[in-house]
């Protein structure tokens, strides 16, 4: 599934990285604890989280994650967006809660990475 398709099915907003829409992703890791993401998210290319601080972007960077999806209407600030831009990580924001967003992506064939 591409990042563009994910954006559409989650009714999400592109906050950065629309030009990365065609990138393909198979595995998603969803968590609010970044240590869990670091421990188990190694093969994932998408990170879904309700945590909203710059360490989310840093964590994604360390794991070569290509897209972060913020759930529950969380909005990253300008510093976070600028960090994501400098690392080439797409940022999506959806109003769906984590469970619902995960369910939608699972229905569309995406799987957890751990």
């Amino acid at each position: 599934m591409t990042i563009g398709e994910i954006q559409r099915v989650l009714d999400a907003q592109f906050l950065y990285g629309e030009e990365l829409s065609d990138l393909d992703a198979d595995f998603v890791f969803s968590a609010d604890m970044m240590s869990d993401v670091l421990a188990y998210g190694e093969k994932c290319s998408i990170l879904m989280t309700g945590l909203c601080n710059s360490q989310v972007v840093r964590t994604a960077e360390m794991l070569d994650i290509v897209c972060i999806i913020f759930v529950r209407g969380k909005m990253p600030d300008a510093n976070m967006l600028s960090l994501a831009m400098s690392k080439g990580i797409a940022i999506l924001a959806t109003k769906h809660f984590m469970f619902t967003a995960c369910g939608i992506l699972y229905e569309h064939g995406l799987r957890g990475g751990a």
Binding site: S35, N53, V56
Partner: peptide
């Protein structure tokens, strides 16, 4: 802030 889950050293 997303850390302090007791995973740092094990990771």
């Amino acid at each position: 802030l997303g850390f302090g889950a007791g995973m740092g050293l094990p990771n």
